[in-house]
Design a protein around this nucleic acid. Structure first.
Ligand SMILES: [Zn+2]
Length: 662
DNA sequence: GCAAGGTC
């Protein structure tokens, strides 16, 4: 019997779980031999996908795809060759093949394609397990099921659909560009990257056309028994600057406010769950400013050095059979953790019950440290990520953080409510182990109803709110995750692809859409609206589900897609000069007939589409701004043009209008 | 040369 595992680490875990394993290396690749249930098992390992769709056909549309070894046509997969050779050598002639990849569609496809190439699908079985724990693995190998062909077919369909849409529309873009500009440029489109680019464009447009409407922020400083605290309007806001100034005068004249309500309570905040990859990427960005992709690379390094468990996971649960205490004791051998470990063991009395989050993963638990000590010193960021993971692991066992919160309502002479709040840490709990949280304290004395608070000062400030539109690699990653787009392993990588193509660029943590990115988005939104929307993914998912349930064949789904994509591509190939012209104009490679007087982009009305958008925002908000601040429209325009929180295009448009007024 | 999905 020959067992095929998805990756070397899994092969090793399977071998150890099933019995006394003998390790043999063929060309450096591990192969295990183990006797289990009266049979000799040979356990070999893949390293993810060994095969993928490709074509020898150039041009457009292209529907003739074949599955070939990845090492043979993909430069970055050259390292897969030794794995491939070992599979090719060890599989032929076995009596039974056991598909033992992760139990998900991709895993099923990996094994299916390997057995199809080197073994015999008719003699294949499936081991189903959702974690690499000894008990679960033994149970899976005692209860082998039939080969899950439908799952594999769904995985094959996923790959082929992605290939058909991605390759065809990438080629369409490149051809259109080449025909108009006369130069070659690597452009791309795909089910995941294109909706992500579209979201970046939406955010970019929202941020740059943003026109802030100022709010009048009132604040009163009060004092009771020598303790000063701050109160702000509770659920109301002055509508104009004049009204706000009148309220300040009024409040100052009376010199005190009267307590209408007071309550205080203790709030207990449980530790955050153990890390999955996205949570780790979020925290590494927040604390160290690392990009999601960099964090992922570092986590993979730490995994390969056996310092942490498998990082490409969505799970927020630790494995139930993990020896928590053993890991902690091992971590205590590292000097910087020893005091923390003894604190934790003392505070829990050795009863280690981890917090869990709601997210699950079909194949892997949350990320945890293995307890091994780094063999050589880690560099700065490897160290930082490792420590983050260790500390998060400790925190999940610790006691809750306890905060005392107090809240009071006070009334001014006109009976308007003002709110004051205070908070104080009573017990640090898990933040002792995971101190990357800011615990702001604010004082509020205990107040009785009817009690007076003396006024120290009162003021009004004009606040121009920021757009609140987040556009960064992390924000895009979070958007992808919340829309179920891409996987934990590919999201960060696909964002890097958008950068590499020059569709996005970064300035520090912020991301921007480039002119090329905008041009590609506009072209695709016109030529293939399906590809720009997350609905294409939802449509794929529905079809894959039907394949899994045996209600639809892979061939039917793929044939339909071939027809659809090639019809669409043929239709647009006929007007490729129009598409190419528009793409090139927007990308700034060709001069348009009419240009925007502000920026030189192609004009869609008087201005380009982007400055038109900003103009519309200005028109919608200018009257309200003028009224709030008691200004004329042109004064309001000048105010907007000079605010930092105003979006770039809105500022430019406001200045343009001011120049025209003169 | 183009996708997205595994993993070294
Ligand atoms: Zn413009």
């Amino acid at each position: 019997m020959t067992v095929i595992a998805e990756k070397p680490k899994a092969a090793s875990r399977i071998a150890q779980a099933l019995g006394q394993a003998t390790l043999c290396r063929i060309g450096g690749i591990p192969v295990y031999y183990v006797r289990f249930n009266g049979q000799l098992l040979v356990i070999v390992s893949s390293a993810g996908h060994m095969f993928g769709p490709t074509t020898a056909v150039e041009g457009l549309p292209v529907t003739e795809l074949k599955w070939e070894p990845l090492w043979s046509f993909e430069r970055r997969s050259k390292h897969l060759r030794p794995y491939y050779e070992v599979l090719a050598k060890t599989l032929p002639g076995a009596l039974t093949y056991i598909s033992a990849c992760d139990y998900d569609l991709e895993g099923s496809t990996i094994c299916y394609k390997i057995i199809e190439a080197f073994g015999d699908l008719k003699r294949a079985r499936r081991a189903k397990f959702s974690s690499l724990t000894a008990g679960e693995l033994r149970r899976a190998f005692m209860n082998l099921g039939p080969l899950d062909v439908n799952n594999a077919m769904a995985g094959v369909a996923r790959a082929e659909l992605d290939w058909l849409w991605g390759i065809n529309f990438s080629r369409l873009l490149m051809r259109a560009y080449r025909m108009t500009v006369g130069k070659r440029l690597s452009l791309s489109a795909g089910r995941v990257q294109t909706p992500t680019l579209a979201e970046a464009v939406r955010r970019w447009m929202g941020r740059n056309s943003y026109v802030p409407v100022p709010s009048l922020s009132l604040s009163a400083e009060l004092e009771v028994d020598g303790v000063k605290f701050r109160a702000r309007p509770d659920g109301w806001e002055p509508k104009t600057r004049a009204e706000a100034q009148a309220i300040v005068r009024d409040v100052k004249e009376r010199g005190y406010m009267v307590t209408a309500s007071y309550k205080s309570e203790e709030e207990s905040i449980r530790p955050p769950p153990p890390f999955n990859l996205t949570d780790l990427q979020e925290e590494a960005a927040r604390i160290y400013g690392l990009s999601p992709y960099r964090t992922q690379e570092i986590a993979e390094d730490l995994y390969l050095s056996a310092l942490i468990s498998y990082p490409r996971t969505e799970s927020q649960r630790l494995p139930s059979d993990l020896d928590y205490k053993g890991v902690l004791t091992a971590l205590a051998r590292q000097r910087e953790f020893s005091a923390l470990v003894s604190d934790l063991l003392r505070e829990t009395g050795g009863v280690l019950r981890p917090v869990e989050g709601p997210k699950r993963d079909p194949a892997h638990p949350a990320i945890y440290p293995t307890g091994e000590t780094p063999r050589e010193p880690l560099d700065k960021y490897h160290r930082a990520i490792y420590e983050l993971i260790v500390r998060r692991f400790m925190a999940v066992f610790a006691r809750p953080l306890v905060i005392a919160r107090a809240e009071a309502t006070l009334r001014d002479s006109a009976g308007r409510p003002w709110r004051a709040s205070g908070q104080r840490v009573i017990r640090r709990g898990w933040t002792h182990y995971y101190p990357y949280v800011s615990l702001e304290e604010a004082q509020l004395p205990q107040l009785r109803i009817g009690q007076r608070a003396d006024l120290v000062s009162a003021s009004v400030r004009v606040v121009w709110p920021a757009s609140g539109v987040r556009l960064s690699r992390l924000a895009l990653l979070e958007w992808m995750e919340s829309n179920d787009l891409g996987t934990k392993g590919t999201r960060a990588r696909i964002i890097e692809t958008l950068l590499r193509r020059g569709f996005l660029e970064t300035k520090g943590r912020r991301a921007e859409v480039t002119e090329l990115g905008y041009a590609v988005y506009k072209t695709l939104a016109a030529a293939a609206p399906e590809l720009v929307s997350v609905e294409l993914t939802r449509d794929f998912e529905r079809k894959l589900e039907l394949i899994v349930d045996g209600k639809l064949s892979r061939d039917a789904v793929v044939s339909e897609a071939k027809q659809y994509v090639s019809d669409l591509v043929r239709k647009y190939s006929q007007q490729i000069d129009v598409i190419g012209r528009r793409l090139a104009e927007l990308a700034g490679a060709v001069r348009p007939a009419r240009t925007c007087p502000i920026c030189g982009r192609p004009a869609s009305g008087e201005l380009c589409e982007l400055h038109e958008l900003a103009l519309k925002e200005l028109n919608e908000k200018l009257d309200m701004i003028a009224e709030r601040l008691g200004l004329s429209r042109s004064e309001a325009l000048r105010a907007v043009a000079n605010r930092r929180s105003t979006g770039v295009w809105a500022r430019e448009t406001a200045q343009y209008l001011l120049r025209k007024l003169k």
